[in-house]
Simulated assay, not measured.
Amino acid sequence: MRKCIRCGTAMVEDCELVIWGFGSEYIQIKYDKKKRAFSGDLGTPKAAVCPNCGEVSMYVENTSKLKE
Rank of each mutant, 00 (worst) to 15 (best):
E61Y: 04
I5Q: 10
L66D: 01
G54N: 13
P51G: 11
D14S: 09
Y59H: 06
V49C: 05
Y59M: 07
I5N: 08
F22V: 15
A10G: 07
K34D: 04
V49I: 15
I29G: 01
S39V: 12
R36Y: 12
C50L: 14
Y26T: 10
E61H: 05
I19P: 00
K46W: 10
E16S: 03
E13C: 10
G21I: 11
R6H: 02
D14R: 15
A47Y: 00
S57G: 02
Y26L: 11
S64D: 11
E13R: 09
G43P: 15
M11H: 00
G8V: 07
V60I: 07
E13F: 08
K3S: 02
F22Q: 05
R2L: 08
M11I: 01
A10H: 12
T63K: 09
E61R: 11
S39M: 11
R2S: 01
S39H: 13
K67A: 04
I29H: 01
I19C: 02
Q28C: 03
K65D: 00
A48I: 09
L66K: 08
K30L: 03
V49R: 15
N62G: 08
V12G: 00
N62Q: 08
R6W: 07
G43M: 15
K3W: 05
G21W: 09
T9S: 06
G21F: 04
C7P: 05
C50Y: 13
F38S: 06
D14C: 02
F22C: 10
L66R: 11
C53E: 07
D14H: 06
S39Y: 15
S24Y: 14
C4W: 05
R2E: 01
F38H: 15
F38E: 07
K67N: 03
T9E: 04
W20D: 15
L17Y: 03
G23Q: 14
V56H: 11
L42E: 04
K30D: 02
V56Q: 12
Q28G: 00
W20C: 13
L42V: 06
G8M: 08
E13I: 08
Y26I: 10
N52G: 07
A10Q: 13
E16T: 02
G23C: 10
K35C: 08
C15M: 15
V18Q: 11
D14Y: 10
S64R: 13
D41G: 01
S24N: 06
S39A: 12
Y59D: 04
E55H: 14
R6V: 03
C7Q: 12
Q28T: 01
G40I: 11
V60C: 06
K65E: 03
